[in-house]
Design a binder for these strands. Structure first.
Length: 277
DNA sequence: AAGAAACTCAACCGCACTATC
DNA sequence: TGATAGTGCGGTTGAGTTTCT
């Protein structure tokens, strides 16, 4: 497929921040006519913007169902948990947080959570010999999860077909479309997270990263093999976590972007979330 | 009080995928 | 069947704001 010309290469199209007038024009038009073809929309709505810019503005800012304001503790937890399994699939994560956009979650992750986790020693450690190993564990686990998605997708994911219904795009789900596939409020992720496997994973994850840091410090090194064993154990725990998610709970159903991985947040019991941490 | 540094987040860019012709 | 159009997604940028020195 050849490279496409950028949609905004037309001279004279406005870029940069949207004015309240432009916002109103866009909202009025979409409310009256729907967005239809994004490429045609700006012309029809009388906006001097490219369609892509209009779509972005609408989906990330103007959509009526967008929840503004700070992320709640529950949302933070969900993001962290989901990110641990699916990685930077912001649209998938957003699909589980009604009213939040992928862009918002991505920004929140990059500016708050990443930093927070790093402080706790749970995110990518600083560069070094053990860092590569630590990162490799996480990356391996993440790739495993993605491989499962692809595998299930290519093998038809028969079980999924019965529950997925409308293979709506993640952004549609994020836009508040009803998620028929989640009619049964089975808080699958909580079951996983609260299971023995989830519990042991949680216990293993934090201390290991601290120990692996100590293991590379001069003078702290006579126990490096023990630290290494613990890291292997943590990797194994995480692997079990993923296996359990994929095989026992059927968590990785369907093609990513096509179906939701988990039930929407609003079916999750707040109390269970609190006890999960 | 002022300049520098750090932070935040809306918006843009470019690639990838699907649909259509 | 290949080319093209349309759209979605993740990564990145940069202007505005806040905090620090």
């Amino acid at each position: 497929m050849g490279r496409r010309a950028p949609c905004c290469d037309k001279k004279g199209l406005k870029k940069g921040p949207w004015t309240p007038e432009e916002d109103k024009q866009l909202v009025d038009f979409i409310q009256a006519n729907g967005h239809g073809s994004w490429r045609l929309l700006p012309k029809l709505a009388g906006l001097n913007r490219c369609g892509k810019s209009c779509r972005l503005r609408w989906t990330n800012y103007l959509r009526p169902d967008i929840k503004r304001g700070p992320f709640t503790a529950e949302e933070q937890k969900s993001i962290i948990q989901l990110h641990a399994i699916v990685g930077n699939k912001w649209s998938m994560i957003a699909a589980q947080l009604p009213g939040r956009t992928d862009n918002e979650i991505k920004n929140y992750w990059n500016t708050h959570l990443k930093k927070q986790l790093r402080r706790m020693g749970l995110d990518e450690p600083p560069p070094g010999p053990t860092a590569a190993r630590h990162m490799a564990q996480w990356e391996t686990a993440r790739l495993e999860a993605e491989a499962r998605l692809s595998l299930l997708s290519s093998s038809g994911a028969a079980a999924t077909a019965t529950t997925s219904g409308s293979a709506s795009s993640s952004s549609t789900a994020a836009a508040g479309a009803p998620m028929a596939e989640h009619a049964k409020p089975a808080d699958v992720f909580l079951r996983l997270w609260n299971s023995d496997i989830g519990s042991s994973f949680r216990k293993a994850a934090a201390p290991v990263s601290v120990k692996e840091e100590e293991a590379v410090l001069p003078g702290a090194g006579d126990d490096s093999s023990a630290a290494s064993n613990e890291m292997d154990a943590a990797a194994a725990e995480y692997q079990m976590f993923l296996d359990f998610a994929g095989e026992e709970l059927g968590l990785f159903h369907g093609r990513h972007g096509g179906y939701s991985l988990f039930p929407p947040l609003d079916v999750l019991s707040e109390a269970s979330l609190d006890t999960a941490f």
